[in-house]
Structure formats: C-alpha cells, structure tokens
Design a protein around this nucleic acid. Structure first.
Lengths: 338, 338
DNA sequence: GTGAAAGCGCTAACAT
DNA sequence: ATGTTAGCGCTTTCAC
C-alpha cells in the first residue's frame, strides 16, 4: 500500500470555484452570505458543491476568520441527568445558531478543570460555560485575561466571573426545611453524596441545616463515600434507624439517594411518611411513581440550558444584555412521602 | 468602551520564539517532540511560554498538519446512562492520547445523523464513532468515501462499515428468555420503550420472543409511547394485569421500565416473584436495592468505551489490528425478582 | 456583484 | 539540533 494520500485529496473551495467558473472568494461569500451573490452564480456554485460533495474545512475557516463557532463546556460529569439534560438543551439551541459544543468532564476536580480549560481555549472558543463558582487561581486568571464570554451555571449567589445562570442551592435547602417544619418534623436527618465531590449538595445541606436550627430543630448529617449508591444508602439509612430511632424525616441530596432510603424503609417495615418522611432533590421521572410518591424539588435543568444559549447568542451578536445574572429558582413538589 | 480587539492580541508561537531567541519552528518542534530539542533551549522556550502564557492555536495546527486530534462521536442521546457512561470512558482514554471528543445527539433520527455527520466531518476528524448500524444512504456514502477510521458501537451482528464494538441485542433477548424458561415461566410479557426510537430494544425483544416461542411459550408485547417513563409504565402494567391476569413474568427493555413495573406490582399487591416475576436490562445501580433485588442484564458500557479507544488509537498509529469486530457480550445477573 | 491578494498561526520538508 | 521556506484552506479587505 502506498503512503496514505493526504486526506483523500479533500475537495477544496478552489475546486468548487474552478468547476463553477468563479473565484474562490465568491464561493466563500456564497457560503457565508448567499444573498450577496447573484442568483445565477448561486445556482452554479451550489451545483458544483453538490457535484463534488464539497465539505468546508472548519479549521481553515476558523483560522482565517480568527473566531470559531465553538462553545466550550465544562461539567463535573455527563453521567448525571442534571448536567446531561442541561447539555442536551444547550446543544440543541446553540446548534441552530451554528455553534458546536466542546464538552469536558472535570470529574469534580478543579485542577482537572484548569487542564481542560487550557485545552478548550486552544480551540479559540467563541464562548465558555463552566459549572459553579469553584475554580482555582490559574483558571480564574486564564478566564479573566480572555475576552471570551463566560457563563457559570447550575449555581447562584457567589460573584461570578461574567454571566451566571442557575439557582441558589442554599435557598433550595431552606425550602425543604420549611416544608419539613410546616409538617411538624423536628428530628431530622440529611443524607448526602460526598460533599467534597459535590459542593452544591453541601450548599443545600447548609441551607437546610440553618433553617432547621433557626427553628430549634436538630439535624443529623450523613455522608455517602462517593456518588449516589442505593446499596450504600440503604446501609447508611439502616445505621440511622438504629442510632437515631426517634428520627421523623430524612432529606436527601438527590432522588436516587432518597430512593435508596425509601427502599430501606420498605425493607425494615418503616411506613412512609408515618414512621419516617423522605424527600429527594431533582424530580427525576421515577419520583412520581415510588410508593408512596416522593416529595422532591425540581431544578430548572432545561431552563438553564435555554437561558445560557440565549445569553451567549445575544452577547456574541454584540447586543448588550441587561440581565446577565439569572436565578432561575426551584419548585418544591410535595407528594405523599412527607 | 473601544471596539473589542480581535481576540485579546493572542500570543503566538512567533512571540514565544522571539522571546526565547529561537525560530518558530524550534518552538513548534519543542511542543511536538521535546526530546529533539536541546535541553538548554527547551528550558528557555518553556520559560518564554510560561512568561507569555502562550496557548497553542489548535486550529492553525490542525490546518497546517491537515489532520486533527478530533474524534467525532454520534449517540442517540447523552441523557441515557448507557451512552453517557460509554462516552465518559471513551473520553477518558482518548484524552490521554491527546484526542478531543466532538459529540453529537442524533435524537434517534437517521436524517439528523446525516446532518450531524456532515458537520463533524467538516472538522476533518481523525476518527468517527457512530451508534449502531442504522444509517441512511447518504450517510453511508459519506462514510465509505472518507478514509477516516470508523467505529460502530453498542451493537453487533450486522456487517459494519469498518470497526464494530458492541454486543448482540438479539442474543441478549434470548439470554433472558432462557432464564425465564429455566424458571418455568411460560406466560410472559415484554414491556419496552418505543421500538421506533430504540432499534436495539426491538432486537432484544425479537431474541426474547423467538426463544420463548421456540419453547412453545406465549409472549405479550407492550410498547411505551416514548422513553422510559415510570408513570406510563405503571399504567401499562396495570392494563396487563387486567387483560392478562395469568401472566407469570415480565421482561422489560430497561431497568427503569422494570422499576416502574415493580412499583405497580407493589401498589397492586402482586408479590414478586411469586405472583409475577420481573426483569430489567442495564444493571443500573439501584437494581441491587429494589425490593426484591432485580434480575437484570449487564451490558459492557465501559468496556465498549475502552475498546473503541484502543482500536482507534492503534489504527491511528498505523498499526494493523487483527480484531476489529468485537462482541463484548453481556452477563445475566439473576436476583430475587425472577 | 465579483476577483486579486494578503494573511490567519501553525507544521513539515529541506537545508544547514 | 536549528533555521528557512512553503504552504494548509479559508476569510477578508480592497479594487474593479
């Protein structure tokens, strides 16, 4: 076999131009602003494009125009319906505006975030979307020195670098506490995935604890070793039942943890909500079907994506935005588990 | 505010070269193959890079070398733990080899797949990963005309375009049927998400049905309107209980559907597995904690990602691979729900 | 409305 | 080991 030809002799804009008997720059213009090319030529050019199966070279275009149609996005993990739904919505809206998402997984690690950010920035992105406010010094410096529009998402409350689209997890915790207090629960627990891994879960806990303690209630805190694991959750709930038998209600850092708690209750014969109340966070699809249906909080997963897309597109169009700090809020969905 | 300068006066390789008193090509060489630059210069250059905060321009590099470090990946949706876990593993392994994932959501639509593929190919990717074998004619043509390495994943059995990494969903269905038959179940049902949306679920159904029918058993088929929705699943299960009260076991197209079925059984007081057995697919985390623990099938989510990365990297290194058609198989996890 | 010419920032021979 | 020289395929003034 001969040395592989360089990229299948890619069809270039010049080839198209030659076939259409126009200059390359006319083809370029046709591709970018078709209306500015005479209808006749437009047709000839399109025909040539189809005939040759021409695909533009994005890299060349990006280099020449020194601006790309890339939006870099950094999330802790895509294996989490919260972020993946936001990503999907964001992708959907940004794509129709001609943008490409470049996604990186920070794995809840700020050093890794910095590394990924460098790699993203080497693409010369048109915009950047990060999760939360926790970045290391270098990341912050990198971001502040660039003129790229930045959105920090899925959180609200701290001062952002540029634009912010999310909601307050602290308020979220308070909301659940208020719900518990209204139902008369005083002996309560908060079971969470590992705080070090998920700062936002910690904020929800803090809001919850503060509000409960203001009312003179007592909060027992339990942390899982890692991510939501129903088995480990079951064990922890079991321990809680033994150690704190007088417990009246359990708030969980997410629905999956709450499911694990409910299943353990079922196993131990603790009636929900009579023996103990249980609440989650996330309003995942299954929460409406558990026995009994689970009380939970609905975060604005998709709204976050939509709003980021809107803000970013506006900014990139050069329109000055009025509202660049968005608290999208949450909704408590009270069901029979509390 | 003055008109925004074009990209913050980006620091270029030339700037670094000037500061380090070497030629740009030496900097380039240092960046690509550090060992081939003398240690002294290497240090000087690195110092200049740090001092200026130089970030290479990937587009320029890609254009000049006419090969990118991009791997395009097309999945039906990232909002699905199957694909998102594969993506995460794939990203992890490919990144350490210096590749960037460019992800597109086909939304289970072959036309959209074609459109996304075009957009991916305009990036001049080093490799392409698609989900399954179902592509339209143009997609197929586009793929066959390119010399880019291609992997079709998450399925196995049909002739692939190039490399294939997955498992047979048909066999998967048969496996579950054999398990049911061994347990003595003859009156069975298969509840699935919408087949039109998920061809692989349909293949599992076909394998299941064929195997059951070979044994003379009867299979009732139920399809959800869309994606796994526990509420709708509950309704469908309820109907099934009324219409086919003699049903002995239910196989589901995924764990979430199976959960919906189990919860409905709990609601109706049908003991699992005595009154009816239930099985899922996916071995999601919670399946071990349901009451009773759920029988399910473990697909090689992560192994798929790892193997694709391996195959792709080998191929891109020019090493000829022996095995480019991989059936990773599945494992049935028998628990108390059957 | 269309074309000529000059890059965009880098890589890759090739020469030294 | 290092520098010189051409591009990579496109966009973008600026003439016409």
């Amino acid at each position: 076999m001969t040395r592989r030809r360089r990229g299948t002799q890619r069809v270039t804009m010049e080839d198209v131009a030659r076939l259409a008997s126009v200059s390359p720059s006319t083809v370029s213009l046709y591709l970018r602003r078709p209306a500015e090319v005479s209808p006749v030529r437009a047709q000839t050019i399109q025909a040539a494009i189809d005939r040759l199966g021409y695909l533009p070279n994005t890299m060349a275009g990006g280099l020449a125009s020194s601006r790309s149609k890339i939006i870099g996005v950094l999330v802790p993990t895509i294996t989490n319906s919260f972020f993946s739904e936001t990503l999907e919505t964001l992708e959907h809206h940004l794509r129709r505006a001609g943008y490409q998402l470049l996604i990186g997984n920070t794995e809840f690690d700020v050093e890794r975030e910095e590394e990924l950010l460098r790699s993203l920035m080497s693409w010369n992105p048109a915009g950047l979307v990060l999760t939360g406010f926790a970045h290391n010094r270098k990341t912050r410096a990198l971001l502040l020195n660039s003129e790229v529009p930045i959105v920090e998402m899925w959180d609200y409350g701290s001062p952002g670098l540029d634009m912010v689209v999310g909601f307050s997890h602290f308020q979220c915790g308070r909301l659940m506490a208020e719900h518990f207090l209204a139902a008369g629960y005083r002996q309560v627990a908060f079971i969470s995935t590992r705080f070090a891994r998920d700062i936002r879960a910690h904020d929800r806990y803090e809001g919850f604890r503060q509000c409960m303690e203001e009312a003179g209630a007592h909060v027992v805190k339990k942390e899982l070793a890692g991510r939501s694991d129903t088995r480990e959750t079951g064990d922890i709930m079991h321990r809680l039942m033994v150690d704190e038998p007088e417990i009246e209600a359990v708030a969980c850092s997410n629905d999956m943890v709450a499911l694990g708690v409910m299943l353990e209750c079922q196993r131990q014969g603790w009636a929900i909500p009579h023996r103990v109340a249980v609440a989650g966070f996330g309003n995942q699809d299954f929460t409406g079907s558990t026995v009994p249906p689970m009380t939970t909080i609905e975060p604005p997963r998709q709204a976050i994506g939509e709003n980021i897309a809107r803000l970013l597109i506006n900014r990139l169009r050069g329109e000055s935005c009025d509202q660049t700090l968005l608290d999208l809020g949450v909704r408590l969905i009270a069901r029979e588990s509390t």
